[in-house]
Amino acid sequence: MKKILLAFDGSNASEGAFEFARRLNELSPILLTGVFLPQAELANLWSYADGVGSPLMIPLVEPGESELIKENIEHFEERCKHSGIEYRVHKDFFDLALPELKKESRYADLLILGSEIFYENIHAGSPNDYLEDALEDVKCPVILVPEKFDFPENIILAYDGSEESVFAIKQFAYLFPELTKKETLLVYISNEAEEDFPDKIQIEELAARHFNNLTMSKLDIPKKHFSTWASEKRSAIVVSGSYGRHGLSQLFKKSFVNDLIAEHWLPVFIAHK
């Protein structure tokens, strides 16, 4: 059984994120922990500087928003009961310091986030600091889920030869053995037609041991076009590494899945060390 965190903007619970968790529970029972945070504070929590000597307290919640959060918690509990999901609700997060909230992800196998709440009121195609900061210090893999999606029937492993991309592939296989039987495409994107597939023998030996229906392909397209290419693959999930030594925030500065996340086309699995 996996422990999965479901983090909500407390006043705008993501139906897409819950639905993804529900489908995972159908494959294999999970423990689902709902974390409900005030909207303004969820946007700011992760941006506070690390290394502060005293605990950082979350500001008070407006009364009207508090009622909305309570309603969403009740809705979450009702849906979990109806779906037969074992669950927990952390109702005391308003009083916890930032380090405690980050620590929660250390004791989880996976964090699921509704991606669209992170992209409100920003320029199209450019992830905001909110999402970057929120993901940088997460201690477990993350799945970003659009509100409308098809549950994965095929898997796209985004590979660039880096240690981070290989790590993400392994983490996905370890976490979701139930999905590894599905049609899987390991894709290497290169701007140069003559460029070799990096460590092709080694990655094939690894991936083929975990993914039963594996195909490998080298795409001779600009990396900036990867998102458009992937968006045409229905019922897929994209597996991506962080592509940077400074954590997941580097994904949005360098990765070719940037637009894919920003446009909410497909669920995206991200893992970093």
Rank of each mutant, 00 (worst) to 15 (best):
N121R: 14
L32G: 02
A21Y: 05
V142T: 14
G10I: 11
E62P: 00
L32D: 04
L110N: 04
H90R: 14
P127S: 12
V166K: 14
Y243G: 01
F18Q: 01
A134N: 04
N213G: 02
V89E: 02
R79Q: 09
F20W: 04
S11V: 00
L135K: 05
V166T: 15
Y188H: 13
E120A: 08
L45I: 15
I156N: 06
I85D: 12
E78Q: 08
W229M: 11
L219T: 04
F256Y: 05
K218V: 10
D92G: 10
R88M: 10
P38W: 00
I237H: 00
K273T: 08
C140P: 00
G16M: 02
L131V: 15
E195T: 00
S240P: 04
A40W: 05
N25G: 07
I221P: 01
W229Y: 15
I201F: 04
S66N: 13
E192G: 00
P99F: 11
I237N: 01
I30R: 03
I112Q: 07
L111D: 00
S235L: 07
I122T: 14
L185G: 01
P177G: 12
K102W: 04
F197E: 07
A21N: 03
S115G: 01
S126D: 13
I270E: 00
Q202E: 15
H246F: 15
N44T: 11
D50G: 13
F20M: 08
D259S: 06
I261A: 14
P152I: 12
S83D: 15
S126M: 14
Q171L: 07
L32V: 03
G51W: 08
L113K: 07
E100K: 06
L56V: 15
P177C: 09
N25M: 05
E77L: 09
K81S: 14
S54R: 12
I169Y: 03
